[in-house]
Design a protein around this nucleic acid. Structure first.
Length: 462
RNA sequence: GUGAUUGUAGCUCAGCUGGUUAGAGCGCUGGUUUGUGGAUCCAGAGGUCGCCGGUUCGAAACCGGUCUUUCACCCCA
């Protein structure tokens, strides 16, 4: 048997103890806020039927789906003729399952399957990995976690407002101060497209305009022409782009005039105004909330509010996004269920907190005391002590092998364990334990009861 | 999907225009101390030079392919 070098597939990552402590901090922080706002947890399977997934994310999205080969003789259904017809013909015959691409579509599937058991409005959160066969690069992985919170079965704009509140709360928990929650409304985009005489082309419009900061107005113009926008339309668009408004209220005032001819556009504005008014009533200001009339998001199913959160000063894309979709469950045969939701990208949040170096100290998950000993007899005595410590709620461990005391200390030092209790013949005789503080280096002889007290005390003050 | 880029010891990297036994620092193991870790000193172990093939008397180095890393574009969390 030849030795093989271990490795993991492209775009996949391991998370060691340190990463996990930090990731759990992120998960716990987000989860606490979700629960505080009345969301309940849901999990769905890793694999979905390919028929559930395909066609929901556009052609590009379909390309990025990980497909799972059928079990058994998967080639059985493929004859020479279909094989020659190419992968589009072969694929459905050899693969009927795929890895989930996001959490929203599986959620929609769940809602439809359980429509009669669910109490509406249904507020659920979900924190699970998703997979995309993308080319990995900065802030982009093939396996990454999303933390979604969605409400279905209500049109109330209170939900949108609460999303703003949740984002603000989570970010404040993370001690993030410089970030923007960009908000827009799909209806405003539709209105703009209407007003410039390019109805139905808001998606193209946004892809082009989104690059304004990056490539400049002239190049955006070129792209707009390439995307089949008329000169006239581009002229009509320019007032928005030259608008120098940085204030939400000012923007809305401007757009009310600009979109005066578009009923749907005005609807979008009034929805936004309603969200802002709720926000005020919930005692929140509009800090970090930035209205961006050209914000659009890839997923075409959004019909109302659109959110995207970007942390400033770091080279990482958006860390959170979402919006309202009026008919997500429609494709699964359940019409008239409106929903709104958003998602935190855990892996990108991790990168952001890392880059800004604002992770809290992760001492909490450490073992508090380790027992070291000199011989067989002492080792057995340690086992009882160990049980007592754990019963008292102290994270304790014993070095499992009888080795030199130096090695036992070394282990404790490496692992950052703050206390080591030493048992030797003297201690055994006097019924004491020598407790060494690994940080100060001090050592004292104590009874087991004293040690329990001391460690509990040390952690209470910490 | 397009265009670049990376791969040498556990880690971070040297290795000149192809030339004998591939190096350093850190880490690791052991000793200095058969009852005390993080310091010093001493010793030692660890590498099919990503993988496959080609050119050559000779390849870690050159060429082709492939996988992987990182990055930009596309798109997206």
């Amino acid at each position: 048997m030849s030795k093989q070098k271990p490795g993991i597939p492209k775009g996949m990552r391991d998370f060691g103890p340190k990463e996990m402590a930090r990731r759990n901090y992120i998960f716990n922080t987000i989860q606490a806020t979700f629960k505080l706002f009345g969301y309940q947890q849901l999990e769905t399977p890793t694999m979905e039927n390919l028929s559930t997934l395909t066609g929901k994310y556009g052609d590009e999205g379909d390309q990025l789906l990980f497909k799972v080969l059928n079990s058994g003789a998967f080639l059985k259904k493929v004859d020479t003729e279909t094989f020659k017809a190419g992968e589009n013909k072969v694929l459905p015959k050899i693969s009927e399952k795929g890895l989930r691409y996001d959490l929203t579509v599986p959620f929609a599937r769940y809602v439809v399957m359980n429509q009669n058991e669910i109490t509406y409005p249904f507020k659920r959160f979900q924190m699970q990995p998703v997979w995309r066969a993308d080319r990995p690069q900065k802030g982009r992985y093939r396996e990454f976690y999303q933390c979604d919170a969605d409400v279905v079965g209500t049109d109330s704009l209170i939900c949108e407002t609460e999303i703003l509140c949740m984002i603000k709360r989570v970010f404040s928990d993370f001690k993030l101060t410089d970030y923007d929650i960009k908000i827009n409304n799909r209806k405003i985009l539709t209105g703009i497209a209407e007003v410039i005489g390019a109805s139905g082309k808001e998606a193209d419009l946004c892809v082009a305009i989104d690059k304004l900061d990056k490539i400049g107005w002239e190049k955006v113009k070129v792209e707009l022409i390439e995307r089949d926008f008329s000169e006239d339309a581009i002229d009509k668009l320019s007032p928005i782009l030259s608008q120098n408004e940085h204030n939400n209220a000012g923007w809305l005032l401007f757009l009310k005039k600009y979109l005066a001819e578009s009923e749907i556009g005005l609807k979008g504005i009034s929805e936004l105004e309603e969200v802002f008014s709720y926000l005020a009533k919930m005692g929140e200001n509009q800090n970090h909330v930035v209205f961006d009339p050209v914000l659009a998001r890839g997923l075409s199913y959004y019909t109302g509010a659109i959110f995207e959160v970007k942390v400033n000063g770091v080279g990482i894309g958006s860390v959170s996004g979402g919006g309202r979709y009026d008919d997500l469950t429609g494709v699964f045969g359940l019409n008239g269920v409106s929903g709104v939701g958003f998602s935190f990208g855990v892996d990108r949040l991790y990168d952001v907190l890392e880059e800004l170096d604002i992770f809290p100290d992760d001492e909490v998950e450490r073992t508090q005391i380790m027992l070291a000993y000199f011989g067989e007899e002492e080792k057995e005595a340690c086992l009882g002590i160990l049980a007592t410590l754990r019963k008292a709620g102290i994270a304790a461990e014993i070095y499992p092998d009888l080795v030199k005391i130096k090695k036992q200390f070394n282990y404790a030092g490496k692992k950052g364990i703050p206390y080591v209790g030493v048992l030797g013949s003297d201690e055994l005789e006097n019924n004491t334990i020598s407790l060494k503080n690994m940080i100060s280096g001090e050592q004292e002889s104590l009874s087991l009861e004293d040690i329990v007290e001391k460690i509990k005390q040390a952690y209470k003050t910490a």
